[in-house]
Amino acid sequence: MKLAVIITLKKDVLDPQGKVIEQTLQNMGINSLKNLRQGKYIEIELNELDEKKAHDTVENMCKKLLVNLIIEEYKIKKI
């Protein structure tokens, strides 16, 4: 089973890279752009067929290593 983790900075943490991307896109004339946050995307393949178990394993990975919970938040998706 393949899952993806999307990691972004929490709302109250300044995201300077996101800000630069946002400003650049606005300068390029994309006026409808309201807000932009950038982050990380990790694809994980597991030897696991049970979706719940796979999700739990990846969640554990997030908590133990992949995510710094003080500044980051994450979403897990099946792909």
Binding site: V13, L14, P16, Q17, V20, N68, I70, I71
Partner: peptide, 16 residues
């Protein structure tokens, strides 16, 4: 910081 022995986080420098 990453071990948790010290609290907080070290983010990218403000000016990137």
């Amino acid at each position: 910081i990453e071990t948790g022995l010290l609290q907080g986080a070290l983010l990218r420098n403000r000016n990137l």
